[in-house]
Amino acid sequence: MSAFIDLEQVWFSWPSGREVLRGVDLTLQRNDTLALMGSNGSGKTTLGKLIMGLLQPTAGKVCLDGRPVQEYSLAERGRRVGYVFQNPERQFFAASVADEIGFALGFRGFSPAEVEERVAELLAFFELEQYAQAFPFHLSHGEKQRLALAAVMALEPEFIILDEPSTGLDWARKNKLIKALEGIRERGVGYIIISHDHEFCRRLCRSAVTLKGGRLT
């Protein structure tokens, strides 16, 4: 089986000249679960965006399912790999929480009844029912975090990248998220969790890497 995500000697510097990644190699199968750790500013978010093709490496190759990630349209990438932004606010655009989750489904040929059912399921799962008609920007941070996850899960991607999903969640919500990700893992969907939360990662990921000095260790 060929790798699903494949990074080969990836280097990245910002136009300002700051070199963030210095030769990163990473190979993941479709059902791998990886924890990506590293101190603040070590380039974890940058690496996540490179995998999604939102940033282009200065040198090296990033492949998704055997093809360079840039060959896929943004929409194709998004359907295959769910990406939860570090700042969940950045990915909201609908006028209500329910719309936010159902948005993409409508564009993918689901009937309104099916969309409604799926949205109701996700709202219930992430305990957001009472906010169904609320404005996403007015939610608390933990609620935004859960909404962002729900919206990405609605797409049923083959792989998920979560940038610090556990920050801002209380203990009970975090456990709930762990249950959700365990369920996803059982369905054969892999993920990368970017996090500082060792306990969270230890429970969810088979392997862990740390980004330090621009390299993975």
Binding site: S73, E76, Q91, R108
Partner: peptide, 17 residues
Amino acid sequence: RTALTAIQLRGVDLDKV
């Protein structure tokens, strides 16, 4: 620009709509 990226990552092909 960020919103434009986010919306496409939700599987919406702007070119084909």
